[in-house]
Design a protein around this nucleic acid. Structure first.
Lengths: 191, 191
DNA sequence: AGTTCATCTTACTGTGAGTAGGTTTCCCCT
DNA sequence: AGGGGAAACCTACTCACAGTAAGATGAACT
């Protein structure tokens, strides 16, 4: 079998295995067997287990980029571009579950109880925020409140990680930026 | 040494090692040596490597919960509670770097090139969004635009993960919710 | 026919998670 | 006092799996 085709086949199957079992639990022997090839071939093509994972991630990333860029192209306004981009993103996540799961770094802990542990931390935060929101939002439907809380936790988590590389952004400035973006969005729905 | 104290000591040191080297690269032999104890002791106390990680995460989570709950308690309004909570969160992340890094599931891939790969995917998304924002925001300072983009990407990523457990939330509804929260927040700063 | 180059294999090494089974130390109870 | 027992601790292993050395097969061109 020619190199290019083998490579595609390996990435395809490895992607499935990583997504199913998680990175740590997936074994190279297992992947090799499913591909119908011996283990050194995988190493010949991808140098290491991590190299194989990276190839899978790269493929998923390319797909996501192409999908979102195409969706945004030709939008009449920035608002519409943002809307179309978001719509494409959420659709991608739903329809291409496997590719998406490779793009969350949970790959490596997926399916483990340590993952549950980390999720529990987020539930703790979303719970706290959901309680705050429920106190003053007009739309008290639990689903909406939950979604908003998840949204806020995700946003702040990411912003916090970004702050790590920007020493000059103090907690105060980060808070101000977050509150500004959030509050103006929320205030219209305040009681 | 009594059990409780040993346990604290082990969690303390394991936390440092996991945060420094990443979960996968940290070895139980290494941790045992640093603690000044033999490996079976770690297994006696925590059952497995993952069990040890979980104990570390639990400790970090407790600290984060206590910090944020305390900050929020006694706030005069929901807005103020949210503000105080966020401030405490961003401060925690800055001051207690190690604890925080255990709460991002990157632990397991930390320091690897697969992690870079996943971060590159986010940069791709933030880049796309930053371009959109720069086109219509009044405040064009790159730092602010970047922070906003990170905020949005994090929010949507989290919301997408939440959607996985809520089949009834279609991409359209997710988009509408995200746009609502975001847009009303952004519109005040539109040109 | 023989050389070359790519694809592919079998059979190994090394590292690190996890364990079997024993030793010391100290306290408590008769 | 001294024996019983449990808690803290150790040495010395097994085993799974990432990674590799060395060569087999076979098509394509001299």
């Amino acid at each position: 079998m020619p190199r290019a085709e083998r490579e595609r086949q390996m990435i395809q199957i490895a992607g499935e295995v990583f997504a199913e079992r998680g990175y740590a639990a997936a074994s190279m022997d297992d992947i090799a067997e499913r591909v119908g090839v011996s283990k050194p071939m995988l190493y010949e093509y991808f140098r290491s287990k991590e190299g194989l994972l990276i190839a899978c991630i790269e493929k998923a990333r390319t797909e996501l980029r192409e999908a979102t860029e195409q969706a945004v192209a030709g939008a009449p306004s920035a608002e519409e571009a943002l809307r179309r981009g978001l719509r494409e993103f959420f659709a991608f996540v739903r329809e291409r579950r496997r590719a998406w799961s490779l793009l969350r770094h949970e790959v490596s802990l997926a399916g483990t109880s340590a993952w549950d542990e980390i999720e529990a931390t987020r539930r703790q935060q979303t719970g706290l925020i959901a309680k705050l929101l429920a106190d003053f939002l007009l739309d008290r439907s639990p689903t909406r409140v939950e979604a908003d809380a998840e949204f806020i936790v995700g946003a702040c988590e990411r912003l916090a990680i970004w702050c790590e590389q920007h020493e000059e952004v103090t907690p105060e400035r980060a808070t101000a930026a977050a509150m500004d973006l959030l509050w103006n969005g929320l205030s219209g729905r305040a009681q």
